[in-house]
Each structure stands twice: as structure tokens, then as C-alpha cells.
Amino acid sequence: MYSSAHGNAKYAPTGFPTAPMNMPPSHVSHFRGIASAATTWSTGLCHCCDDPANCFITCFCPCVTFGQLAEIVNKGSISCAASGGVYGLLALTGFSCLYSCVYRSRLRGQYDLEEAPCADCLVHFCCETCSLCQEYRELKNRGFDMGIGWQANVDRQSRGITAAPVVGPMTR
């Protein structure tokens, strides 16, 4: 490692910056290769009432919400139905939280989100429904229409169409 003129950043012989040796791994962006502060979630873990329809669906059939999440996080490589089906089967055994915590980690990695309020698997083990709702809201707040799947979102984006803005009550 070679020190640079830019402070604490260390550069390998390849010229790409690497994280300082004393930086904790939670602050290292694996996508940029440099230390960076993770961004906060757009909503809190317990803000399920921000989207009551999704909260209701997730409470009574979490495999639907998980399937929608997994399709977007996997960028369409696995369908909503297949992911939801696997989740449903694992729910019968009690191990669905282990499967879904992997997707929380992937989502955090894709958007450089902080691991909060605690470790991903612990969040899913203790608050499975709330964590699925939070992940759903995060993707929705990032412009995804969760009901149409990955490919339709890509098609909309390529045509320049973004998700409809949230509008307050109409008044005269």
C-alpha cells in the first residue's frame, strides 16, 4: 500500500483507493472501494402505517411482499412468484427469516444503506413483518412500482416514465 497526497486514503499499485486499515468494515463501501458513510433508510423500521395497504398484505401474506422485493433486488432474474413460493415453503419450517435477511443485506448493498437498527438477520428474526414493510417502502421511495415487477419498471424507466408523485388531498 502506498500513501497518497489525499490524506488517509491508501492506494494499491493498481491506483484504485482501498479502505484504511483501521476503518471498521461497516463503513467500507464494497462497490466504490473506499470508505464511505452508509446512508439512512428512507423510513424507520416501525413506520409500517406509512403504507397501510402493504402493511395489511405483509401481515397476512408476507410471501407476496417478499416476492415483490426479491424480484426487484434480483433485477428480474427470479420471478416474484418463485421467490414468494420459496419464502412460503420456508415459512412453514420457520426459516423464512434466514432467507429474507439475505435479501435485506443485498438491498443494503445495492443502495449503501446502514445496517440499522441492528444486524440484518436479527432484524428479520425479531421483526420479520416490519422489516419486509421497510424494505418495500425503501424500494417504493426509490421510484419502483412494486406491483409491476422488474421488467416493467425497466421499461418505464427507459421510456422516461417515473413513478407517479405522491400528491396530497385535492382542494379547490
Rank of each mutant, 00 (worst) to 15 (best):
C49E: 09
G84W: 06
V73I: 15
V123F: 00
S42Y: 09
N54F: 00
L113N: 12
A81K: 14
E128D: 10
K75V: 06
W150P: 10
C61T: 12
S100W: 04
L92G: 02
F60C: 04
D120V: 03
C49Q: 11
F66R: 02
G88Y: 09
M146C: 02
C133S: 08
G94T: 10
P62I: 03
Q68G: 01
E71Y: 04
A38I: 13
W150K: 07
G44W: 01
R104C: 06
Y111V: 03
L98P: 03
C126I: 11
G109A: 10
D145W: 02
R106S: 11
S83F: 02
N141P: 07
L90F: 01
R106E: 10
I72P: 00
C80H: 09
L69E: 01
L92H: 05
C46I: 05
P62W: 05
Y99F: 10
Y87K: 03
K140I: 00
C48W: 05
I57H: 04
C61D: 15
N74F: 01
N153K: 08
E71C: 03
N74W: 07
C127Y: 08
R106F: 06
A53P: 00
C133T: 10
S96C: 14
G76C: 09
S77F: 06
G143S: 02
L92K: 04
Y111N: 10
L45K: 06
A38K: 15
K140Q: 12
D145N: 11
L113E: 13
E71N: 13
L139V: 00
G143A: 01
G85Q: 12
K75T: 06
C63G: 05
G85K: 13
L45I: 05
K140R: 14
C126V: 12
W41H: 12
K140Y: 14
Y99T: 00
N54E: 10
D51F: 12
E115P: 11
C133M: 12
L98Q: 03
W150L: 05
V102F: 06
L89A: 13
E135N: 05
K75W: 05
S105H: 14
T40W: 01
L69K: 07
V86M: 15
D112L: 15
E135S: 13
T40D: 15
L107N: 08
S42L: 15
F60T: 10
C118D: 14
A81F: 06
E115C: 15
L122C: 14
M146I: 01
Q151N: 13
S96Q: 15
G67K: 04
R108N: 10
R106V: 07
R104D: 02
Q110A: 14
Y99H: 09
G94H: 07
